[in-house]
């Protein structure tokens, strides 16, 4: 149903600014979340499940560690 709504009612014609707000919102969320995961997470995301232990384990930080350095984000 959601896909039908998106396909039928929200067409994108790049006239002036002919882009649906729904698409902008969805992509803005993806942008923000992805940037945080790769560039800035220090255990924050997993702390929602594992509590303070996540700040010790730093699983996402370590997983993204090499890309973090290589793409210019500040690291420890």
């Amino acid at each position: 149903m959601l896909l039908n709504f998106m396909s039928e009612s929200s067409q994108i014609y790049a006239s002036k600014t002919g882009i649906s707000k729904l698409a902008i919102m969805a992509l803005a969320i993806v942008f923000t979340a992805g940037l945080f995961v790769v560039g800035f997470d220090q255990g924050h995301i997993f702390s929602l499940v594992y509590g303070d232990q996540a700040f010790e384990d730093l699983y996402i930080h370590e997983l993204t560690h090499d890309m973090r350095h290589a793409s210019g984000f500040p690291c420890h």
């Binding site: 992805g34 370590e62 560690h65 090499d66 290589a70």
Partner: peptide, 14 residues
């Protein structure tokens, strides 16, 4: 091993 996965995540974001 996270280098390529993180690349895909960062790439999707940017």
């Amino acid at each position: 091993s996270g280098q390529i996965l993180a690349g895909a995540i960062l790439g999707t974001s940017l």
